[in-house]
């Protein structure tokens, strides 16, 4: 059991000190994801507050595994809710939330820091990196990605796929497990 899993076990028992350690370790991640997606400081702060209150009120949402990956998804999904509420477009044209529980198995890159990921991203071809970042942080669908970058949809999809494979192998290079 890693640190975060042990802390979350205590949070489930209503341990405020354990929760505070979780907050201190992960608030920059939650805030960073929200700010990148929403480009609005107040909204990012609101997301941070809501995500951590949610962690406190429903800690059973995290069982075990990679806490950072899990809370990153929870943050993205919450920011996506705001993007949805702002959008004039119908929900059918906006991306669906990623299942947060799928992140729990992602223990391979459990101890990444931001700088390592940024370095790995920087080694991707620009046309792959741009699509991946816009897809993840922009909260838009692959079809919208194709429109905004004036790229055929088929090309968008293959670039996302090769880009993610490339990112994974770049990360393998910087991560010691």
């Amino acid at each position: 059991m890693d640190d975060a899993s042990a802390l979350m076990a205590r949070v489930r028992k209503r341990d405020a000190a354990a929760f505070e350690e979780i907050y201190d370790a992960y608030h920059r991640l939650v805030y960073g994801v929200a700010l990148r997606m929403l480009d609005d400081v107040s909204a990012a702060e609101d997301v941070t507050q809501a995500v951590f209150l949610k962690v406190w009120s429903s800690p059973e949402g995290f069982t075990s595994g990679n806490f950072g990956a899990w809370i990153g998804r929870v943050a993205r999904n919450r920011a996506l809710d705001i993007i949805r509420s702002r959008a004039a477009r119908p929900t059918s044209e906006l991306p669906e939330a990623m299942p947060a529980e799928d992140a729990l198995e992602d223990v391979a890159f459990a101890n990444l820091d931001a700088e390592k990921v940024r370095r790995a991203l920087a080694r991707l071809p620009a046309e792959q990196r741009d699509l991946i970042e816009l897809g993840f942080f922009g909260g838009i669908t692959h079809e919208e990605l194709a429109r905004r970058t004036s790229t055929p949809l088929g090309t968008v999809k293959t670039r996302i796929r090769s880009g993610l494979h490339r990112l994974r192998s770049e990360l393998n290079g910087v991560v010691t497990i």
Partner: peptide, 16 residues
């Protein structure tokens, strides 16, 4: 999937 979850880490802010 792990590569996608790593993407979120790249956004980590220096401070909130």
């Amino acid at each position: 999937r792990p590569a996608v979850d790593a993407l979120a880490q790249s956004a980590q802010a220096c401070r909130t």
